[in-house]
Design a protein around this nucleic acid. Sequence first.
RNA 1: CGCGGGGUAGAGCAGCCAGGUAGCUCGUCGGGCUCAUAACCCGGAGGUCGCAAGUUCGAAUCUUGCCCCCGCAA
Length: 308
Amino acid sequence: MKIVFAGTPDFAVPPLQAIYKAYGSDLVAVVTQPDRPQGRRGILTPSPVKEEALSLGLPVLQPERLRSDRDALARCGADLMVTCAYGQILTQEILDLFPMGVWNLHASLLPAYRGAAPIPRALIDGCRETGVTVMKTELGLDTGDMLLSAKTPIYDSDDCGTLEERLSRLSAELAVEALAMIGEGNFSLRKQGEGFVCKKVQRTEVDFAKSAREVSCLIRGLSPAPFAYARIGALTLNFWFAEEVPCEADVPAGTVVGASPKEGLVVKCGTGAVCVTELQPAGGRRMSARDFLNGGKVREGMRFERLS
RNA sequence: CGCGGGGUAGAGCAGCCAGGUAGCUCGUCGGGCUCAUAACCCGGAGGUCGCAAGUUCGAAUCUUGCCCCCGCAA
């Protein structure tokens, strides 16, 4: 059973490694997005999947548009393709290249959170549980029939980074399990029910008028990128992590009610308060709230203000 | 030449604009108080002020060049 793997970001690396480990040279090619300009100086950077594929000695394809470059893919002569956060929409022509189908690893419990950013979205929405689904790709966006899924709880200590890492490892396990079933032809598929699509997440200004849980979930869902941020005085702060804390103080939402190195940066919300434990001022490095407060730039009683 | 912030004790910062004995908060070490403490009080150690050159009697501070870090935007 010859396999092609298509993926791009860090999330797809563990699945790639797991499939390589299980199938070795039957993994005949890796497809990934073209190198893109990254960072402040716009340096052309290969995707994490490309780097891993090269270090495993696997052939790499990175067409600008897969649909208009199907010949190279056809020449691989693979029986099936596994996709994982590849980043391009497949066409029927592409799907038809693989007699045993195209299978997608998706980081949600489908049919919830189809589309671009299932992990941060689940976190932002305050879900208590999420997971990974293996599905057979069809033309609709993540609407194909499901083969396998696995769940994991979302903890209050999770941010997008930790959750993504956990789901990535789950995906890797699930991928190997799924391939075994497909290889033996011993499986059945389940239809998806009514679901919904989620969009890519953007950098977002925190609205402290919302509940402490909403604020905390937003901060954790957007960390470690693209971040929830807020302005206080002349400073803009990117928040890396925050937890909910009880708060009796009768002050406007956004007011700093705790700014000692001991208690951390505590900010009043619509209901309750959040304690920011890890943050990054614009221009500065990531630091603990404790270190930040030692600088003395933010004191109790100051207030986060939204401009717009 | 995309816009911008920054490099001062182990950490986070002030001092720079109007050059002249290195400061704050925290940590750390020692001592004290206490039944006790992450609390409180007293004391100490710890800094080539990113690098180089220049101006000056004198540069963390002014000028020039270089290195490094970071936020936004792509």
